[in-house]
Design a protein around this nucleic acid. Structure first.
Ligand code: MN
Ligand code: MN
Ligand code: ZN
Ligand code: ZN
Lengths: 139, 139
DNA sequence: AGCAGGCATGCAACAACAGTGCAAAGTTCA
DNA sequence: TGAACTTTGCACTGTTGTTGCATGCCTGCT
């Protein structure tokens, strides 16, 4: 993906493109799985952790990435689709966390079934993570 | 609930009843919502954090409590029903996390719909948390 | 009663992660 | 050029989760 295309992706979400942000976006695009802040940190070794943290925060606030809380206990991030508005329930999907390799996968084709919540519980977001064993870790 | 009844509840799960464990169990029974380690810590102020942590761990390993990972990022615990075996998908249920008061509710009557996962992804556990606003926080 | 072994508890310490404050550097625009 | 604003880097803090080790307590045996 060209720099121009990366810049456009950021601008489409009203994120001012900086060198740092382009690097982070490029890394995110290259990943099959959701990543943690530590993953990002060990890939972009010359960047500061705080900056990476704030970059992901900005991305999330502008709907460019979504957050997943899996059984590993720490936050993972993955790119949203271009047309995603992170709204419930249409733009939410199931995730899978492998307890062996600790990778977290997005299943964008598995949308969240709408839940019949008790009165006055107003949903805005869903964190649906199936834990188990992934194909590469199957024994 | 009498001490005898609490002891029986522990013994039914093959947990040796100690004074500490009875206190923790009693607290858990009294809670409407899932609790965090810190909640427990601030209730049982004279007990050590590590002991409480290990007590919850023991309870979890013996299927007395289940764990929830909500958007707060930290682990919460709630009692399982007596007949619960924490197996997928029958004994799993939906949870609700209120982003205002940060409480996490169990919805035991809302069971998890079975998901049609891609080949060779083997599920063992589900963490399904709906985030939003609870009745007491509705504006 | 005395003692050995095993389990539970408490204390100390550590690692990882999340988050904040502030100052320096860079960018935008008049 | 220079002011105003944004972004980045550094230092530091707080919380949670977790482990190691020593001590205490309970149990069962002699
Ligand atoms: Mn995803
Ligand atoms: Mn529950
Ligand atoms: Zn795996
Ligand atoms: Zn609430």
């Amino acid at each position: 993906m060209t720099t121009k295309e990366l810049e456009d992706k950021l601008q489409a979400r009203d994120i001012h493109p900086t060198a740092m942000r382009l690097l982070v976006l490029e890394y995110l695009i290259g990943q099959e799985e959701a990543i943690s802040l530590s993953d990002l940190e060990s890939h972009l070794t010359h960047s500061d952790r705080t900056t990476l943290y704030r970059t992901l925060k900005t991305f999330r606030e502008h709907g460019l990435v979504h957050q997943i809380h899996d059984d590993s206990g720490n936050t993972k991030y993955a790119l949203c689709r271009d047309d995603c508005t992170c709204s419930y329930p249409d733009d939410m999907h199931v995730h899978f966390y492998c307890s062996r390799c600790e990778k977290t996968y997005c299943f964008p084709h598995l949308t969240i079934p709408e839940m019949d919540l008790p009165d006055s519980f107003e949903p805005t977001y869903v964190n649906f993570v199936v834990t188990g064993t992934c194909p590469s870790c199957a024994s």
